[in-house]
Design a protein around this nucleic acid. Structure first.
Lengths: 143, 143
DNA sequence: ATTAATCCCATAGAATAGGTAGGAATAAAA
DNA sequence: TTTTATTCCTACCTATTCTATGGGATTAAT
């Protein structure tokens, strides 16, 4: 399951994409509109900024903006940032690779194969889930 | 990522399937062979027994046995038992269903669709990963 | 009786999740 | 130049979950 942090992050990003032309948007506006604890969201947006997914503008009338087009920002990036590896096992991740401590022989590990297939399928879908595509889906469903 | 508990459980189950004709097998044997902390494994096998995935025989020469054929026991059952829901969001699980607190409109939620597709694909693969199929994969790979 | 198991209950340290508090720095507007 | 609205920074806090460990009661085969 995704952590609250990740879900809040996704919600905030979708919000920013939706009101793209009103950027920069303040943390407090997003927090109120999406019912996210203010200070918690502040920390989340800071992380997104450090990861260069968002950019910020300080001072009055400042706030956060997407650092890139909604087509370029996808859920794989966000999930990895907050929840770490997407895979079920450390030995099938690309970014966070580590052997399984208890794995006697990685080459012939039957669980590993399954985990690898699941990872590949999941990553592909998360990468396909860009902010743009999420907004598009929502638009279609509202009809 | 799967918890250690789940990984230990899977390892123990594969071990039992592999030495099916030597059942019942004691906790201490599995713990030593697979390098799992004894008392921790004891608790894990108790849970598997309560879930009727294993059965036990007390006293000398006792131990644990699979409660069913290796074709009938799959990773979806095990993962659900120890790590809970497989889905990324509570609103797309079957067993543990809960709405997302912050979700304004579940019907038109764009993230939900993605999460649902991922869940379906993942569950299908985990259900396909029976103990029998895992052993079969390992056999093939050793060639 | 002895031995080798499971069963049962309680405890505990470490890490993580989720959230809070207060104030400094910055920048636009009045 | 003061006010106002914002991000930035640092520190803290609590509850829960994860990963175990310890001791002894019960059961059953030899």
């Amino acid at each position: 399951m995704l952590s609250r942090k990740t879900k809040y992050a996704i919600n905030a990003l979708v919000y920013l994409a939706r009101y793209e032309d009103e950027q920069p948007i303040s943390v407090s506006r997003i927090a109120e509109d999406r019912h996210i604890p203010l200070k918690f969201l502040e920390a989340i947006l800071t992380e997104l900024k450090n990861a260069r997914i968002l950019k910020s503008k300080k001072g009055k009338y400042g706030g956060y903006s997407l650092n890139g087009r909604p087509e370029e920002i996808d859920l794989a990036q966000v999930v990895r940032l907050f929840d770490g590896a997407i895979a079920l096992l450390p030995c099938v991740t690309h970014d966070y690779y580590e052997p399984c401590e208890e794995c006697v022989d990685e080459e012939t590990c039957g669980i590993r194969q399954v985990a690898l297939e699941i990872r590949n399928a999941t990553v592909a879908r998360l990468k396909g889930a860009t902010l743009a595509s999420i907004l598009e889906r929502e638009r279609k469903m509202r009809e």
